[in-house]
Amino acid sequence: MNIASEVASWFAQPQNWSGSGGIPVRFAEHVYYSVLALLAAAAIAVPVGLLTGHTGRGGFLAISLANFARALPTIGVLTLVVLGMGLGLTPVLVALVALAVPPILVNTYEGVRGVDPQVTDAARGMGMRGGEVLARLEVPMAMPLILLGLRTAAIQVVSTATIAAYVGIGGLGRFIVDGQSQQRIEQILGGALLVVALALAVTGLFTLLRRWVVAPGLRRRAAASSSTAS
């Protein structure tokens, strides 16, 4: 029997779709950890990126810290927190947040720094206060990069959340880990495919989000010549 049909039959087996170890539950767990980690990372990285980008102060420090976080081995962070706090959700979240903060922080910072200084000069010259410049100008103009950073982080988080299985809290990694211990290749492949599908869904979601929140004036291609681009 070839491997593709084995994977197909794994997906077709009803018992893989039910119970606490079924695909829907594992999928939901995976999404839950990923969303939680991404939200926590965004709550840290976006404000720090906006503030350092806006003031120009502390940018070097923030970027250096982000680079440091980028160099941290996820397995190491996970293990360290497990040793400190025991198995559970927290170690996974800490490891995933450490993974997600750098791309969000760096892109947000660069997005704000990348705003044409002439435009901010004009804004201040017309009497905008710092907060107004940030809210009305820098955030909307940095939005494409902020979204890019969030998307990069989201895909890495989704792919890395498989390690949650190692600290016993499920997720799609469970299929991969169990497939290995039971020598069932089709189950490893099935789990991997589900993760890839989730990553593709994330990509699609961010494409929609981009259409939703990025100001139309910044979407150059969309509005080439028509006068009523809305």
Partner: peptide, 20 residues
């Protein structure tokens, strides 16, 4: 900021807000 709102300001290349 209050002072500047009472003074018109035009710069090179206009400095227009691209997203508005």
């Amino acid at each position: 900021p209050v002072l500047r709102r009472s003074i018109g300001y035009v710069i090179q290349q206009a400095g227009l807000f691209p997203h508005r």
